[in-house]
Design a protein around this nucleic acid. Structure first.
Lengths: 256, 256
DNA sequence: CGGTAACTTGACTTAAATCAACAATAGTGG
DNA sequence: CCACTATTGTTGATTTAAGTCAAGTTACCG
């Protein structure tokens, strides 16, 4: 893994006006360090991995950058290699539902339609690995295991989506926030990171739009959890877990 | 397609007590008529299709029958060939979220974990086609295209889940019910059925648990749609579409 | 028919939204 | 390093959409 692979120019396909900060590095200068245990490329043979590397290209994006918009022609599948990303859908009057927060190892951009079904935007500086959708058609020869990994990751996303449907449809504000924090902690552990403190790279407004609440309710509910001594908020982008078992109990509605 | 394939005994794997109605046919007596255009088996070669048929077994279930429960050991992937099925998750206090209604051509039972992530229950008499989860491992040789189809169907489910998250998190009761009816109509058309009347094989209580509402609110909202002359309800399991374009407008929040 | 379950409608309550200040935080430039 | 401003987050007062409670009504099934 010391060879130098081809690295393309960074160009924003969704951005036609030149209003983005131009002082930002527009070239990707390092090899994306794919975590071969948990990522899309996990369990690939050395040969297959090399072929996969030749099909993909890499991009690094600044914070708050739109990678693609809902409805844009879906030409690529993305794998997040570092940083975090939010996916959201909009209604015509501006109401927004965030359908997922992504961390390294997650994939996005999967669709059956012509266009992407959501907008993808970075929360902080993020690196992605990208494959043309059409390589899927050839992938049985080129990279049979890659298709299998994509399927597994799609199924995982589907299970997460079902879980969030339960939160949105049937849980109270307190249960939703507790579930959200518990889920972030669990995913951090799955990526080999500590359970606490929980990193919160997203704003209160993002959390609100993820949980189907308003920012005011999210804020009040954070205060509630603090008063219950379940969490401590040292700064607004971190939550220290004081009582993980109570958090899980509250998440499941056992907080009476 | 006139050969007679092996047909197994009907046995409910989730049901250990013998409390089910015993007068119900417990043998599957006809070949499941897979719609080769839209189903899991679409686009398979004749050879592959034959091999797939040898891997699967078939079951027919009575109405309101639990096919498997959330947490049951996930050993099979199911494809629905006739009838309709609901998938739901429960909280310990009985609150329920229906995460999907399924119609012929849909798949269910996909999971990464040991157990199924939801309970699957028939709405009416339903037939399924079933594959051991483990055939996926061998399927690259046995049926390469099958895996591809499964992936496509999983992606379609994921897109539907994201859509429903928008309904649950950000839409009003009227918008949710309008979206639901519009979606049922659209899916019926995709299966080659007429747009109207819309079949409603599920109860008001099921609709409520799907849309994150109460039965009372669902009932009031149906009345609202009737008063707007968008629909007519000849009987409680059918809705005639009087004004599809207004329905779609209401679904997207343009009903002011 | 008769009785139960499913659905509808109305009166009232409530969890979360909205409206309105206010406080903390993070940049920005002197 | 410290004001100055803009943005983000918190808290309180009030409103509202949907929930709850309580009758009715209709439909279904033996």
């Amino acid at each position: 893994m010391t060879a130098s692979f081809d690295v393309r120019d960074f160009r924003d396909p969704a951005d036609t006006d030149g209003s983005k900060p131009s002082d930002y590095p527009t070239q990707l200068c390092r090899i994306c360090d794919i975590n071969r245990e948990t990522s899309l490329c996990a369990r690939l043979s050395k040969d297959e991995f090399t072929r996969v590397l030749s099909m993909r290209d890499q991009f690094q994006f600044p914070p708050l950058h739109t990678i693609f918009r809902e409805g844009d022609r879906a030409q690529h599948i993305y794998a997040l290699t570092s940083g975090s990303v939010k996916l959201y859908k909009l209604l015509s009057d501006g109401r927004r539902q965030i359908v997922g927060f992504l961390f390294p190892g997650d994939v996005f951009g999967l669709t059956n339609d012509e266009g992407y079904p959501y907008t993808a935007e970075t929360l902080n500086q993020a690196s992605t690995c990208r494959f043309p959708q059409k390589v899927l058609g050839q992938s049985r020869d080129m990279a049979p295991m890659l298709e299998r990994r994509l399927f597994d990751l799609a199924v995982r996303e589907l299970m997460r989506a079902h879980e969030q449907m339960l939160w949105l449809g049937r849980k109270t504000a307190l249960e939703r926030l507790a579930s959200f924090l518990a889920s972030l902690a669990k995913r951090a552990v799955e990526r080999g990171q500590p359970e606490s403190p929980i990193a919160l790279p997203m704003s209160r407004s993002d959390i609100a739009d993820f949980l189907g609440l308003t920012i005011e309710t999210v804020s009040r509910t954070f205060t509630h959890l603090k008063k219950l001594n379940v969490i401590v908020i040292p700064d607004n982008s971190h939550a220290v877990l004081n009582n993980p078992s109570l958090l899980n109990k509250l998440a499941e509605g056992g907080g009476d």
